[in-house]
Nucleic acid binder design. Structure first.
Length: 523
RNA sequence: GGCCCCGUCGUCUAGCGGUCUAGGACUCCGGCCUUUCACGCCGGCAACACGGGUUCGAGUCCCGUCGGGGUCACCA
């Protein structure tokens, strides 16, 4: 039998990083076994705008390259893949459960139930529903209904014995049936609840391995009860630990951004992202522009493979030594047996390290292609790009090397794409390197003259020219190079000065020096 | 509080009774390189929660304690 796994997001409007890891493990497991990975939309609850709330999630999956064999937009022969469109199946299951006595109609009001709960608490005992308002017969049901009561359908859970779950990650988990409640599976309005729906769908869709986050572990007994009552074969279960907050063991949550911002590394990541967004004149929706949400990484130019590689290691390891895996290697080497049982904290720094490494290994051509859209978004490059943009950018990226850690970082080199008279100067650097040193202006003026005669105008020749200039003037290289950098790029930092000048070209370099000198206050 | 899960450096982890004076990675701290920044290189700090067993021998097995977390809906 072919392996079939699924990821069942509810349409929330964003893709959570923890969810992606769960999806990744499901995907890897399915791919490794030449099985199918499906996406199913768990929208049994509310939903208007399911489409718009689902779009970002599907977009995230596509960006990451986690393809699904069946599900929204791709179809499949076990559809529909939206739970809101599968009510008849649930209804049939409810009726079967009712008929076999595994479920009953219950007419208790919320208040009555609460009273029982309170009483149990008062008595220091755990709550066990009396089933007082359970309708054993149709006549009972009619009588209750006549009283104006609304009926729901509850599971008639066993109250003796225990359930043993053989979890692929956790091993044997034993739960006493007595600790379970008679969970509601169908509301008074006829709509069905998640537990019923997920079980019915997993069965109907032929899911063989339920790989999900551990917060579902406590839900498993009731689901197993439904499966058994319906005569379904049980799938294999694998409960993954959840992804925890940076530096804590609490579950990572989208809503606690403010709290995470107090974490230095996390805050640094956010700021880095914000600075990139700002340079693209992008007004960010702080609700989504958040390292807990996958979209964040796409926006600032992360490599999907780097994110995936990091996430893979968050809870799984091959041997404790090897950390880099290509997609193919992940598929080949992944195993549920080696998934850790304890929750793992999300570490922005380590994620960055993976991204950094992946970016360094990215072929120049691809790097260029990934950076172009950022320059376009910032209005620095035309759409489509002029024909000299590509070669120019490739040179810049080669010179920048590993300074460009994510595609959005290319905006650090915006000065190459601005007209000379549009250069923006870092005020502090301008002051420190050009205004303050008494000799700076004169040195720059003299060197500009030398520069105008350099031929060929390449890094090596420019370097030789500067070295001989420095020698002739009897100064240290540091006495002029900083001023030169600020004058030609407007910035205090950047990659190699000689590469910078070569890329700029003679005319622009000289022109920029003149413009900077002109901005200087009269001596 | 009930039920369940978990517990090796700050973080991610290796370790499946002896090869562990506990290994790797990220971070951090020194040093080197150097025109700034980044990279790189060299070196360093840093952990088996605790207590009992079992055993010739325990990070590794068992029990307990403590600690952390998840979950207890007519949410998913």
């Amino acid at each position: 039998m072919s392996v079939r796994t699924r990821f069942a997001p509810s349409p929330t409007g964003y893709l959570h990083i923890g969810g992606v890891r769960t999806a990744l493990f499901n995907w890897l497991f399915a791919r490794q076994h030449d099985g199918q990975f499906l996406l199913r939309v768990d929208d049994t609850d509310q939903q208007r705008n399911v489409e718009s709330a689902l779009a970002p999630i599907l977009h995230g999956f596509r960006w990451l390259g986690l393809d699904w064999d069946e599900g929204p937009e791709v179809g499949g022969d076990r559809g529909p893949y939206y739970q809101s469109q599968r009510s008849e199946l649930y209804q049939a299951a409810v009726e079967q459960l009712l008929a076999s006595g595994a479920a009953y109609r219950d007419f208790a009001t919320t208040e009555e139930l609460q009273a029982e709960r309170d009483a149990a608490k008062e008595a220091g005992k755990s709550f066990v529903y009396s089933r007082r308002w359970a309708a054993e017969t149709d006549a009972d049901a009619q009588r209750f209904a006549a009283e104006g009561r609304a009926g729901v359908v509850r599971l008639k859970m066993p109250r003796e014995g225990e359930l043993v779950i053989n979890d692929l990650i956790r091993g044997e988990v034993r739960v006493a049936w007595a600790s379970e409640q008679d969970h509601v599976i169908q509301r008074a309005d006829g709509s069905c609840l998640y537990h019923l729906a997920t079980v019915v769908d997993d069965h109907a869709m032929g899911i063989t391995h339920v790989i999900r986050a551990e917060e579902h572990l406590p839900n498993t007994p009731r689901q197993v009860f439904i499966m058994q009552s319906l005569g379904y074969e049980l799938p294999a279960f694998a409960h993954l630990p959840y992804v925890a907050e940076p530096g804590s063991k609490n579950k990572l949550s989208k809503r606690k951004l403010d709290k995470y911002l107090k974490n230095r590394e996390f805050a640094a990541l956010v700021q880095h992202g914000e600075s990139i967004a700002a340079r693209m004149n992008l007004t960010v929706d702080t609700d989504v522009f958040n390292p807990v949400i996958v979209d964040f990484y796409e926006q600032i130019g992360f490599l999907p493979d780097a994110l995936l590689n990091y996430l893979l290691l968050l809870g799984w390891s091959l041997d404790g030594e090897r950390e880099e895996f290509t997609r193919e290697e992940m598929i080949e080497l992944f195993s549920l047996e080696r998934v850790n049982r304890a929750p793992a904290s999300f570490d922005p720094q380590k994620l960055l390290a993976f991204q950094d490494r992946a970016m360094q290994q990215l072929p120049a051509k691809q790097k260029t292609a990934r950076c172009v859209p950022y320059l376009q978004a910032a209005g620095l490059v035309a759409t489509p790009p002029d024909c000299d943009t590509g070669p120019q950018l490739t040179k810049i990226l080669a010179a920048a090397g590993d300074r460009v850690k994510m595609a959005g970082d290319v905006l650090d080199y915006d000065d190459f794409f601005r007209a000379d008279d549009q250069l923006q100067y870092d005020d502090k650097a301008f002051e420190k390197r050009l205004v303050k040193p008494p000799a700076a202006a004169e040195l720059l003026r003299k060197f500009a003259e030398r520069l105008a005669a350099v031929d060929p105008f390449d890094a090596a020749t420019v370097e030789a020219a500067l070295k001989s200039f420095v020698e002739a003037e009897g100064i240290k290289i540091g006495d002029i190079i900083h001023a030169l950098r600020v004058a030609t790029t407007g910035k205090a930092v950047g990659f190699g000065m000689f590469e910078t000048l070569e890329i700029l070209g003679r005319d622009r370099a000289v022109n920029r020096i003149q413009l900077a000198l002109a901005k200087l206050p009269p001596a």
